[in-house]
């Protein structure tokens, strides 16, 4: 019996009797990060990183939560568990599970580049690595964050010069916060959609030091709306809510924007390939960094990625999960942000 099984509720450790990121309610859930396709409602007990706990409380309400720090072991039924930074969003963790000398790491979602907010991805030695593969094709390769930020800033300046608002579409948890330092360099007036404001509040209350933002509401003075910089989730795209910022340009921040067709489908004015997931090279680097002999690829291009790994000499397979939609291009609130 392997240490981790792929059950119809998610990754299950029989020996420790716990699940990792289960998609159905269970007794005991270990959570990699607070995105709603990984942290689902209804379980009796949640274990996560300290930085994830306030986000779970904000999103899932009152439950029994326990949180731990990086690389601070806890034991469940004799199985050793540690968390290691995944670099995906604030509090995102890879979960290392060890028993009888066998080590598994469940990556959750991750990215290699340090975005300055989500922690630096840590390669963790293991025998078996379960990796995401959202962008597991070689057509996906990201520019450095600094360069994308500079592109975004140029775009904002151009819009400002034309008297237009700049609406950046970004996932409320993760991407929105990641953009703040970039935008704060070009304006003091950052407006955010209510969904983003709620998360912002939760993070400020948890002690995070983030640039100041203003919630857009019916009371927001018109003078602030015109020529402003706004961050909104994709659910706001094309909604009447956006009319108040007119004239405006829309810029979408998502790894999917790398491909012209995906960008054209969005009918936006600009696309920035800013992703909180690893690109092709990042995925390969992560796999190699673990020293794992066996690799399972989940949610994304798991077929292509696992086949490539097999050809590189790994023992690799694909696992179907219910995280997000495979290859999702229009993330809704249940899907993982690209």
């Amino acid at each position: 019996m392997p240490l981790i099984e792929f059950s119809n509720c998610g990754f299950y450790c029989r020996e420790g009797d716990f699940y990792i990121d289960p998609w159905r309610p269970v007794e005991r859930a270990l959570i990699t990060h607070a995105h709603s396709d990984h942290a689902r409602w209804g379980s009796k007990y949640y274990l996560c990183h300290h930085d994830t706990k306030p986000l779970l409380q904000q999103r899932l309400g009152n439950n029994q939560y326990e949180s731990i720090g990086w690389n601070a072991p806890v034991y469940i039924n004799g199985v050793r568990i540690t968390l290691h930074p995944a670099g995906h969003i604030i509090g995102s963790a890879q979960i290392r599970v060890e028993s009888g000398g066998e080590v598994w790491v469940i990556s959750g979602d991750y990215k290699i580049e340090n975005d300055g907010l989500s922690g630096a991805f840590e390669p963790v030695q293991c025998h078996t690595f379960v990796t995401e593969s959202t962008f597991g094709l070689p057509i996906y390769h990201w520019k450095p964050q600094a360069q994308i930020f500079s592109d975004i800033q140029s775009w904002i300046s151009k819009n400002q010069a034309e008297g237009k608002s700049s609406i950046l579409i970004a996932y409320s948890l993760g991407k929105a916060q990641r953009l703040l330092p970039c935008i704060a360099e070009v304006t003091d007036n950052i407006l955010v959609h209510g969904a983003i404001y709620n998360i912002h509040e939760a993070l400020i209350n948890a002690g995070w030091n983030l640039p100041t933002v203003q919630k857009v509401s019916s009371e927001t003075p018109k003078s602030l709306l015109k020529g402003s910089v706004v961050i909104a989730p994709s659910s706001a795209e094309g909604s009447p809510w956006m009319k108040k910022f007119a004239p405006y340009e829309i810029g979408i921040c998502s790894g999917w924007m790398q491909v012209r067709g995906a960008f054209r489908r969005k009918n936006a004015d600009a696309g920035f390939s800013l992703s909180d997931h690893a690109d092709w090279k990042g995925l390969l680097e992560a796999v190699k960094g673990t020293g794992a002999e066996r690799v399972y690829a989940t949610h994304g291009f798991q077929f292509a990625f696992s086949r490539y790994l097999r050809e590189q000499g790994f023992e690799a397979g694909e696992v179907r999960t219910e995280f997000g939609n495979e290859e999702t291009t229009t993330p809704d609130h249940t899907a993982s942000p690209p």
Binding site: P138, H141, V259, R260, G261, F303, A304
Partner: peptide, 17 residues
């Protein structure tokens, strides 16, 4: 080929790779 079927355009696939 996998990449091409995802991008949907040969010229772009090569440019991306």
């Amino acid at each position: 080929e996998e990449s091409y079927h995802t991008v949907g355009d040969l010229a772009e696939t090569i440019a991306l790779l």
